[in-house]
Design a protein around this nucleic acid. Structure first.
Lengths: 241, 241
DNA sequence: TAAATAGTGTCTTTTAGACACTATCGC
DNA sequence: GCGATAGTGTCTAAAAGACACTATTTA
């Protein structure tokens, strides 16, 4: 290693710096299927295509804080399950300039999903088509409310695919499944969530047994209202995992 | 949103940019225990403490490429299992300036581990103490060859903890366990790797059954040599998962 | 009582743990 | 044969899938 290289190694000013953004996968359920909130781009590059909400990370702002801020600013949502997903750093992922993006996954329950749509009407809920491609997440397809395919900007379809993959992996041993549901929910709804994310039907008795045996949920004693059939019992998630 | 804010949203030059680095967790096995290769810092900040090898991401270099380059430059290793771990972006994680780091996990088999030590003698193999803290990864402790505790610079002990956590999570359904072993290995060695990473003893017959039933490994017909007891059969990993 | 969904009982299959047993090598 | 580790057979326990059955509500 030459003296110059050694210096470079310790002198950050010697390197041109990339921009860093945070992009959010705002994930909720639409008609029982996983859906992400997207914005249509009206400028170059990728004008007309759909993109994840995002923004630049400020110089005095932690990554997690940037994600929370963008969640607030772009979706009007104060709190949600928010976790870092992956960082995307291909050189030409943005044709204008070097931008590295740190993708975050935000899980919105029904109400928060609806509120985001109201707070920011330009957000479009796009259903994510989740084929059962085994554990290895194949490419995902995105479609608008009328079933039309949506073309995504940048590498955002990769980011979406990564989000689904992450969800699948964590569904069985973490609390992510509950983050998409309101405080009180029926076991059937919980199973719907799992089936939507996994893209595969599950066995009802086995599912109920698993959920109850894990001690994750507690029966409230209350029941669903407004059904035209036997109302299901409402359960609550036991916060401390 | 005001006009100025809107502009800022699309004008990256309006934001001061952070530096971005890649840090590597060079993980191998030392005396059957997980160990990471560390460098002692000789400058401020954290002079004297131990740190993960790392370097700045160049403006025309993808994140993955930066990780590979640093693997080459700092450890003299051409190829290894390399995967992105997590991005660390607290504001003051480096007291000098804003640096966001993208941590990568490199899994080195015995031979590569030894070669890295030869190529870069300043690397110290530090054994990572892995208590069985359930699935939630508690803090990890690092110790030098004489069993003395090593203090780590920056947030690097968080990064190490994340690496162990990731390994544990993927051990059972991915090929990471094999990345720490040479081409041909005995079932006992494979079980040792799993036990070292999980920090818990495993059942021998069950372990063998699992590995063979999954179709991940094939018997070579050859046997270990140079033992003073019954030599074990050598197996090979079936690359395509 | 019919329709619809909630919720359960139980049999089978699969998978994992326990543990002792046999096998095979060098010496 | 001894010491040491490789490798297996088998019982038991726990978990998951299949599938039909009962239960409870509204209309």
């Amino acid at each position: 290693m030459t003296e110059a290289e050694l210096l470079n190694d310790y002198d950050p000013a010697a390197f041109e710096r990339p921009s860093v953004t945070v992009d959010l996968v705002l994930l909720g359920l639409l008609e029982g299927r996983p859906a992400a909130l997207l914005l249509q781009r009206d400028h170059h590059p990728f004008a007309g295509l759909w993109a994840l909400p995002g923004g630049f990370v400020r110089i005095d702002e932690a990554l997690d804080d940037a994600a929370e801020r963008i969640l607030r600013e772009k979706a009007g949502i104060g709190a949600a399950h928010l976790e870092q997903l992956y960082s995307f750093g291909a050189v030409k992922r943005d044709p204008r300039m070097r931008i590295i993006t740190v993708a975050y996954l935000a899980l919105l329950e029904e109400r928060a999903f609806a509120e985001a749509l109201k707070a920011t009407p330009s957000l479009l809920p796009a259903i994510i088509d989740v084929p059962w491609s085994g554990e290895t997440g194949g490419p995902v397809e995105t479609m608008g409310p009328n079933g039309e395919a949506l073309a995504l900007a940048f590498d955002h379809s990769d980011i979406l695919a990564m989000a689904i993959l992450r969800l699948r992996g964590k569904l069985d041993y973490s609390d992510v499944g509950f983050a998409l549901l309101p405080d009180r929910f029926t076991l059937r709804r919980l199973q719907d969530v799992h089936e939507a994310i996994l893209g595969v039907p599950l066995n009802k008795p086995a599912f109920r047994r698993r959920m109850l045996d894990k001690g994750w949920i507690t029966a409230t004693g209350d029941r669903q209202e407004g059904t035209s059939f036997r109302p299901a019992e409402l359960y609550r998630f036991n916060r401390p995992l």
